[in-house]
Amino acid sequence: MPTLTLKNVRKSFGGNDVLRGIDLEVTTGQMICLIGASGSGKSTLLRCLNLLEPIDDGTITLDGTDISEPGFNPQPVRQRIGMVFQSYNLFPHMTAMDNAMLAPRRIHGHSRAELEPRLADLFTRFGLGDRMQHYPDQLSGGQQQRVAIVRALAMRPEIMLFDEITSALDPELVGEVLDVLRHLRAEGMTMVLATHEMGFARELADTVCFLDQGRILESGPPSQVFGDPQEARTRAFLSRVL
């Protein structure tokens, strides 16, 4: 049963067509990896899914509701779809714990005491048990990114979007963040990732989509996209990055 369905999604920024007709289905429990060169539209696609960018044409439906309808209130949708950014975007004036608490406190009206045990548990599971009271600038890039993931998970989203979340990290820190994703994958979280980690995509994705100039040029299981790419441009891209 498809959770999130995109039909002919188009988006342009000042005459620059970034998405030129995207069709995609995200089913519950699935992990989809978006690959492609910088500027191919991966990040924009994720921002459109989270309604941070309104789309120009086409539709995005979530469980049958057209969430791309102009004027649709994005807040409830964003509460169901979590997002993690390449540059972490933690709130620098709050501790890791306060970063994670802000949204559930304001939106669900939970108290600190109610949230504390559950969030502490999440932090601990991702190896941050002793970092909850630290401020972002006291944490390494990998730790900050894991805090950002916990912050998004604190809202108990049904779908998680990851926008090149390891691209700003030093190579030795990439592993710890990918481990978190493996963890979520094992728990059956529905995920859409824009990523340059081809090995990771190959290992875990249900579907890999190759984006090129705002279109999904090729998609399928990783064995097919990586092992037997049909399009010349996919082959050219893979030969550059693998």
Binding site: L52, Q75, R78, G82, F85, L102
Partner: peptide
């Protein structure tokens, strides 16, 4: 702008984003 985007992506309203995320940093 990414701070606002992060706040909104969590489902916070724009006034909450301003009050809890943007303003405390801006005033400091």
């Amino acid at each position: 702008e990414s701070q606002r985007a992060a706040a909104l992506s969590l489902g916070l309203s724009s006034s909450d984003s301003m009050r809890f995320v943007i303003l405390p940093q801006a005033i400091r």
